[in-house]
Amino acid sequence: MKTDKRTQLEHQLYITGLCLPCVGIIIWILWQDLPDVIVHRQQLPCIFHAVTGLYCPGCGGTRAAAAFFKGKWLLSFCYHPVVIYGCFVYFWYMLSHTIEWVSQQNLRIGMRYREIYLWLALVIVVINAAVKNIALVAYHIDLLKLLDGIS
Rank of each mutant, 00 (worst) to 15 (best):
C19G: 08
A65T: 13
I84F: 03
G110E: 10
S103L: 04
A64H: 01
K132A: 15
M1E: 10
K132S: 15
W92S: 12
Y117H: 14
C19E: 12
K2G: 02
G149P: 02
A67Q: 06
C19A: 15
L54E: 08
V37C: 02
S151W: 13
F68S: 13
H140V: 07
G60R: 01
Q42H: 10
A138H: 09
M111I: 15
I150H: 03
Q32K: 07
V23C: 04
T52V: 15
V125S: 14
F68I: 15
L95M: 03
Q105G: 11
Y55I: 08
F69C: 13
G60W: 01
C22V: 13
V131S: 05
H11E: 12
V137K: 03
T52H: 00
A64D: 03
I141M: 05
V51M: 15
Y79P: 06
H97M: 06
A121M: 10
A135V: 13
W119G: 00
R108C: 10
Y113Q: 06
H97C: 02
K132P: 11
Q104K: 14
T52C: 07
F69D: 08
T7S: 14
C78K: 06
C22I: 10
W119H: 09
W73K: 01
Y79A: 03
I134V: 12
R112T: 15
Y79V: 11
N133A: 10
I150M: 09
N106Y: 05
H49C: 12
L136Y: 08
D4G: 01
Q12V: 13
S76P: 09
A135M: 11
I25L: 04
P81M: 04
A50F: 11
G60T: 05
I134E: 07
G149C: 12
C78M: 07
K5Y: 14
C56K: 01
H11A: 11
A65R: 05
Y90N: 03
V137Y: 06
C19K: 14
W31A: 04
K70C: 12
T3W: 14
L20I: 14
D142C: 11
S103Q: 02
W119P: 00
K72F: 15
L9Q: 12
H97P: 05
R112F: 08
L54V: 06
E100C: 14
V39P: 03
I29Y: 09
E10P: 00
F77Y: 03
Q43C: 05
R112S: 15
L136N: 11
L118F: 07
D36F: 10
C56E: 03
C78L: 06
T3Q: 15
H80T: 04
V89E: 00
L75I: 08
M111Y: 02
I134W: 02
A135Y: 04
V23T: 09
C19S: 14
L122A: 13
L147H: 03
C22H: 03
Y55N: 02
C87Q: 03
T98L: 09
L44F: 10
V23L: 05
I47P: 02
L18Y: 06
